[in-house]
Amino acid sequence: MPRITTLEAGDIREAIGRAERRTGLRFAVFLGGAREGRRRYAERLHAALGEDAGRAVLIYVDLAGRALEIVTGEHARRDLPDGRCRLVATAMATRLAAGDLAGGVVYGVNALAEQAVRRA
């Protein structure tokens, strides 16, 4: 199972901070294994963001299942419709499949922020 270094975790946190400042949305990343169906688990993680869930974007990477999900709240979905999220997920999947876990996640956060800014 791929792992990220402390430095890579810092890169992900920095990308999240930049994305949040640029878009006004909340970004969250979860790397791990699903305890139930992957989409359902990602939606539960998203709901656990509480009051922020409506304006949140969750990127969930199922390390064991080698898959990912992007979940958006009601407000976030206005700036990031499903089609745009699918395009970003496809590009992320290419990087993840090549073994670049941190790079794939950073790319995804940055690309989602860029898509949200373009729509605004």
Rank of each mutant, 00 (worst) to 15 (best):
G108N: 11
A102K: 04
L87R: 13
R119E: 12
D79F: 05
E43L: 04
G99Y: 14
C85D: 01
L112Q: 14
R40K: 08
A47C: 00
L96T: 06
G54Y: 02
G50M: 06
A113E: 11
R22N: 05
P81H: 01
C85M: 02
R78D: 04
P81G: 00
G108V: 10
R86F: 06
E8Y: 14
R86P: 00
A120F: 06
A28S: 14
R66I: 02
Y41E: 00
L101M: 15
G65L: 04
P2Y: 10
A15Y: 14
A56T: 11
L31R: 12
V29S: 06
A9I: 05
I70Y: 11
R44P: 11
G83L: 03
A102M: 09
R66Y: 06
G37K: 05
G24E: 08
L58V: 10
V88R: 07
V29R: 11
L112K: 13
F30N: 04
E51W: 13
R95L: 06
A42G: 13
V71A: 05
E20H: 02
G32S: 05
V57T: 13
E51Q: 09
E51V: 01
Y107V: 05
R40N: 08
E14G: 02
R77E: 08
E69D: 14
E36D: 10
R3F: 08
R84S: 09
R95Y: 01
V61C: 06
E74I: 03
L7M: 07
L25I: 02
G73N: 09
R18E: 13
A93I: 02
E69A: 08
V57E: 11
V106P: 15
G24K: 07
E36P: 07
T6H: 04
D100N: 11
R55P: 09
V106H: 12
D52H: 03
D100M: 02
